[in-house]
Simulated scan of single mutants.
Amino acid sequence: MTIGSDIARGPNTPRPACRGYLYKRTQSGLIKGWRKRWFVLRHNCCLYYYRHKRDDGKRQAVSVVKLEGAEVGTDSSLGKPFVFKCRPHSGNRVYFFCATSNQERKRKTRKKYLHPSEPLDVTRHNANLPPLAVQNPDCLGLLHKMDKGRDMWVQHYCILKDGCLYLYSGIRATHAHGGIYLQGYMVREQPYGSKKSTIELKPPSDEFKTFHLCAENPDENKRWIIVIKASINKWLPLHQALHNYMKRPMEETKM
């Protein structure tokens, strides 16, 4: 994932975590009832909703619900099937949503139980630090990254920390100008162009970019590959825990 002040617009930012039509219970106006709206759950842990699917990306959302710390669960008090409610951490309002099937209800509520903003908060914090202010890095040093748009290798001062590679213009930079969140990436030594040895970072899906980096020599490439793999593997238990959590029955996934 691209790290920096423009993280939400970066080329390596994944697609929304979940999107689709839901019925939302209205709590204002003369007639109370259910209205069909287009919902988009994004990786900043916010739920955006629009009047129509065609408005997504073209018009401002009708409203945004912040889900970090929210309580989400099924509800049977309204006498309607496939209903779940959401109580945000701040404020007193409770939102009621209705899916078109039980499968959709489970899929959407499970998405909301996760807190994807937590690792993003850490990476944003680190990205705003000078390189030597990042505490206990897994590795640091100069790497060249292939800029495929310009077909040239660009040198960066790099900090590897907790499965994220931060890219700086130099050691005296005040903040990272980009970065790669490496969870799920495959790391290997590969030839690229005229170079017989480079570090290839291959993403888990086509939603992300493949990156090629190069140290000063093949031995340094091998060293970086070892430490990058180790940095990613430190977070595999967390990744597996989230995977197991999403597979649990709905009645067990209470906050």
Rank of each mutant, 00 (worst) to 15 (best):
Met1Thr: 10
Ser5Thr: 14
Ser5Gln: 11
Ser5Phe: 13
Asp6Glu: 11
Ile7Gly: 02
Pro11Lys: 02
Asn12Phe: 01
Asn12Gln: 06
Thr13Lys: 11
Ala17Tyr: 03
Leu22Gly: 05
Thr26Lys: 01
Ser28Pro: 04
Gly29Lys: 02
Leu30His: 02
Ile31Gln: 04
Trp34Lys: 01
Trp34Thr: 06
Arg37Tyr: 02
Arg37Ala: 03
Trp38Gln: 09
Val40Thr: 09
Val40Ser: 11
Leu41Pro: 01
Cys46Phe: 02
Arg51Cys: 05
His52Thr: 09
Asp55His: 08
Asp56Arg: 12
Asp56Gln: 14
Ala61Asp: 07
Ala61Pro: 12
Val62Asp: 15
Leu67Asn: 11
Val72Asp: 02
Gly73Lys: 09
Gly73Ile: 05
Ser76Leu: 10
Ser77Phe: 00
Gly79Trp: 10
Lys80Leu: 13
Pro81Trp: 02
Phe82Tyr: 15
Val83His: 06
His89Ser: 09
Gly91Ser: 08
Gly91Met: 10
Asn92Gln: 13
Val94Thr: 13
Cys98Arg: 14
Ser101Pro: 11
Asn102Leu: 14
Gln103Cys: 09
Thr109Trp: 08
Lys111Gln: 10
Tyr113Gln: 14
Pro116Val: 02
Pro116Gln: 02
Pro119Gln: 04
Asp121Ser: 14
Val122Tyr: 10
His125Ala: 12
Asn128Arg: 12
Asn128Cys: 15
Pro130Ser: 08
Pro131Lys: 07
Pro131Glu: 07
Val134Cys: 07
Cys139Trp: 04
Gly141Ala: 00
Gly141Thr: 00
Gly141Arg: 00
Leu143Arg: 02
Leu143Thr: 04
His144Tyr: 08
Lys145Val: 07
Lys148Tyr: 09
Asp151Ser: 12
Asp151Tyr: 05
Lys161Gly: 05
Lys161Glu: 08
Leu165Cys: 08
Ser169Phe: 03
Ser169Ile: 01
Ala173Arg: 09
Gly178Arg: 07
Ile180Met: 15
Gln183Arg: 05
Gln183Trp: 03
Pro191Glu: 10
Pro191Ala: 06
Gly193Phe: 00
Ser194Met: 08
Lys195Phe: 12
Ser205Arg: 13
Asp206Val: 04
Thr210Gly: 00
Ala215Thr: 04
Ala215Trp: 05
Asn217Met: 00
Asn217Ala: 03
Pro218Thr: 01
Lys222Glu: 05
Arg223Met: 08
Trp224Pro: 08
Ile226Phe: 13
Ala230Val: 07
Ala230Thr: 06
Ser231Ile: 07
Asn233Pro: 15
Lys234Val: 05
Lys234His: 08
Trp235Phe: 14
Leu238Gln: 14
Gln240Val: 10
Gln240Asp: 11
Leu242Asp: 01
His243Thr: 03
Arg248Asn: 11
Met250Phe: 06
Glu252Asn: 11
Met255Gly: 00
